[in-house]
Design a protein around this nucleic acid. Structure first.
Lengths: 195, 195
DNA sequence: AGCATGCCTGACCGATCGGTCAGAGCCTGA
DNA sequence: TCAGGCTCTGACCGATCGGTCAGGCATGCT
């Protein structure tokens, strides 16, 4: 054997992504990944310090984009925040469908790991932005339903091309989210920012 | 000790429901459940043939209601199917939040077990009904996003009372789902039933 | 040739999993 | 009083998990 470092490293990463997306992080053993690559379990642990490090490296690109989106969101309020959150998350979810599928369901346990310490806070801020920073329960419920539903849909619709899935999700979000400062019975004041 | 049968049986069931909802089916060991009840692991396996049977008995009520909803859906088309599916599933998800939380994420693996053989087909029909039996990708995507999002929201918003969560979800679904045979450029024919 | 370095592996480890089993303790009916 | 059934348990089992370790085997430099 004796391939180049990056080669085997990348193969393990790709195999792990495939298996994690199907059987989940917990449900996939290092033996499974090694079997798919065609190497031994010890080889997997030669290239990655442990199973958690393998997952962290797998998630790094998606987490980076999520961080960028979080930065764009700071300071925005009302419909501007809603629109940026909707576009940003839909694009992220469509692009990183496989990573989304990995986190699906195992979110609470995986978030305890140090590599994902801030994801929970970021996703909370994202949900808050999609709700237009409103504290109305209906708005917060709608935001959660949409974010979770989009994640699930992206993980499930693996056969639909990006360019078809993205606009469909975006129009759905825009229809489902009620703008916080446009068609409400109150006069269009600009005071409804985060208190 | 030596309590009445039904007493310990019920306590194990309740403890399992609590733990499964937090750490998932796979992430909860029989030892965990026994510890929460205050009995030995062998006692758990005295009352239930195996871990799978424990889960099956836990899910039985929710599955029964899901089956009833599936029956109500047969024969309905268009907006009627959409409305019944929306109301039925929102009510089911709100009532059985804990059971929904258990299935969350571990859906694909759990469905392989014989006790849940038909759930996948039922949920597929439910999604189809919510999409108004339309084959438009946008309608099918919206239906999946909403069903998955509602499940997630019910599992997460444990502190919101039923009477508040239910109407919020229902209005969200009605706003997000576009009726199949009302404001479309086609004339309102009644031929759009399942082919 | 001799040596060092990097890639890879089989064998092994302790922990934990779901599940089995013989038997202890208790209650009840004969 | 005693036999028998019900409830419950500690001890144990094989399988599998993530992870460790000494060493094999190329390759390349001196």
């Amino acid at each position: 054997m004796a391939r180049a470092v990056s080669e085997t490293h990348g193969e393990i990463l790709a195999a792990a992504a495939r298996r994690f997306a199907v059987t989940g992080y917990r449900g996939t053993s290092l033996q499974d990944i090694a079997g798919e690559v065609g190497c031994s379990k010890a080889t997997v642990l030669y290239h990655f310090a442990n199973k958690e490090a393998l997952l962290a490296e797998l998630m790094a690109p998606a987490i980076g984009v999520l961080r960028d989106l979080d930065d764009q969101l700071t300071g925005l309020t009302g419909t501007a925040a809603q629109e940026v959150a909707a576009q940003g998350f839909v694009d992220l979810a469509v692009r990183f469908r496989r990573e989304i599928a990995v986190l699906r369901g195992e979110f609470p346990e995986l978030l305890c790991q140090p590599a994902f310490a801030h994801i929970q806070q970021i996703s909370d801020r994202l949900r808050d932005a999609l709700a237009g920073h409103s504290d109305r329960p209906a708005a917060r419920i709608a935001a959660l339903v949409l974010l979770a539903g989009i994640s699930e849909a992206c993980a499930e619709f693996v056969d639909i091309p990006d360019d078809e899935l993205r606009p469909a999700l975006l129009t759905l979000v825009r229809r489902a989210v009620e703008p916080v400062d446009a068609p409400l019975p109150q006069p269009p004041t600009t005071e409804d920012k985060d208190s």
